[in-house]
Design a protein around this nucleic acid. Structure first.
Lengths: 203, 203, 203, 203
DNA sequence: TATGAATGAGGCTTCATTCAT
DNA sequence: CATGAATGAAGCCTCATTCAT
């Protein structure tokens, strides 16, 4: 009984943590960081404010965890994509599409979180971003080893790729609203391949 | 007297508004939005907290105005660059450099401001961004008219360009710290020209 | 079975009460009243917070009981000392030493408890103190009956004696840190005998 | 104007600080530290909670200041008494009376404050107590120089004196309620002179 | 119009106590 | 009876905004 009960308890605890984080993400997405209050979080999670402190030390920890989760999802997907046997270009396309899709969901979350200094630990942001850059760099490196690409600065390339995607999903004016993630991903990869300026002068 | 005095008054008022906005920008740059308090703003502007409310309705309005200013500068620079007789590629390079230089200065400002929901009106953000996209689109269009470029989706191209720049200046991990704005601008334009992936397969 | 089981139960209950009080005293001594939380108490007592409420009505009751215990010990010792056949002065010396020794141990406890209004019932404090005064008065009365002392206001004398001791053990500046309880007890008794001012003018 | 106005402002500020401290002392006296809330303090001082923070950094600072004030009064009186040309014994009597009188007023204040660790800085307590001991020691030293007293341990003597007084004013059972401060002071000094035990054995 | 003290709503967090299991 | 998560009242403190001078 103690063993099983312990496992049970852990499970419930984990469940509750997830519930809180999910609620938090929802608020961040819907209302932004400025309206992320513990009271609101509790309400959204269906508990009392005090209860949350049984699962997290304080507000900052929660924001951190949400951010961490979000990066985790992204990094795992990146790793998964990089592991499949396929041309690097396909990888980038797939990743772009996932990011556009995921970021459509998480757009406001990242918007809300990213540039906030305190109370959000910049460190988490830094390492997360770094890992993401590394993941994309790996893909591009594979592409070079394949003979697909020819870049020598992987980090620069990865950064540009991410910048293009991020701008697409940031899109505060709704310029790309009518395009599907698929189309945008294709466009992004096309740009990566040939530049944004087309080949006007190559003639 | 009434006429002149009125003009005088307006001038003074305008002067005061500027002083407040300048002070606000300074604080945003130095301390971030979270430490932007009205008291601090008053102190930095050399007045009293109450006085500020004679010139602005509330805090949000001030943040809005600062954001507006920042966009204005950028848009004017963009227009200025676009007006000079030179190849479009040079324009982009010049713009990139300015942005990287300016954003180095203003990084925290944009970091702080962008994507914050209330108390920052999303609307201002939206229109500012839209105008910026338009400005860059114009440059690219000129390039196409020149025969320099070959793109048919100006907006997409402009967006990608901005995304690449923004990612470079966001750079939370300091990947590009050791590079000059000049070098980064060159790299950005190179990417725009040939893609981030080089020409591995063109062989 | 009912009878025995009832006794058994009572015994266990009493055991549990003791365990809780001991744990409480330990916390009070170690951490002070401000850090005396029910959770901590439960942990120290090896049970759960909720369980404690099966043995005590609320936090205040527990603090009360601890205080009561502490006084009990002191009173019993006093009675024990007073029962031994010895000069009253020796009794006072012995009592002083015990108090200084005990209070060294319990300093924080008394520091923490004494004079705290709610949640500590002043009543308990009052009666405890009263009994202590009475105990010391008894000793002094014996001394007078012996011909050792000559006071006619026992209560005043007892109060002064206790005040001297308490001040010695309160000693927030560590004035007496380097003295042993024995030495301090001797000094206290000497003062009781001859006054604090010596006999300068008696010459 | 600026000069005068500045003085005016300082005066008002000082006035407000005093009002807050007075209110705080009143609460401490009446309700104890546990019921000393900022809300209550504000109410008692006739302002809003937020206002208080224009005059003090936080709650602890306020408690500190009240304690400091209380010690100040005591120390100044002590110094004043010690400065008057009179026998040391009269000084002690006068001091005892003041303390009993003042402490009657401040009893609960010291009761409330003294043994609390955080949030009350123990340091302030320590230094205050130390100065008090020193002040009384000075008086006793004068007595010895006069030939009035004969003690060689001033600190011990001062400590005992204070202990006797403190016990008298602590008096949780009301043993001395019917006595005037004058009578108690006399009794205290008598004890200091001849000991608490009278001169039973001197015969 | 300038001032800056006053206001008070609202945020985060703690913890005694309850109660379903 | 034991458990310990849930509760929510209450405490401290901040700060945008108002208003008397």
């Amino acid at each position: 009984m103690p063993k099983l009960s312990q496992e049970m308890k852990d499970l419930l605890t984990e469940e509750m943590r997830k519930r809180i984080l999910t609620a938090g993400e929802k608020i961040l997405l819907r209302d932004g960081l400025d309206e992320f209050t513990m009271e609101k979080l509790a309400h959204e999670a269906g508990t009392a404010a005090g209860t949350i402190y049984n699962y997290f030390d304080n507000k900052e920890t929660i924001i951190d965890a949400i951010m961490e989760n979000s990066f985790q999802r992204l990094l795992q997907t990146t790793a998964g994509i990089a592991a499949k046997p396929q041309p690097a270009e396909s990888m980038l396309r797939e990743l772009a599409e996932f990011m556009l899709e995921d970021f459509k969901r998480v757009r406001r979350l990242h918007e809300a979180i990213m540039q906030r200094h305190p109370p959000i630990s910049r460190e988490k942001m830094r390492t997360g971003h770094r890992k993401l850059i590394d993941g994309v760099s790996q893909i591009i490196r594979q592409g070079r080893n394949n003979g697909e690409f020819n870049t020598d600065d992987m980090v620069l390339a990865a950064s540009a790729f991410l910048g293009i995607i991020r701008e697409m999903q940031f899109d505060p004016c709704g310029l790309f609203e009518h395009k599907t993630s698929r189309e945008l991903a294709d466009a992004a990869v096309a740009i990566c391949r040939s530049g944004i300026l087309g080949r006007g002068r190559e003639k």
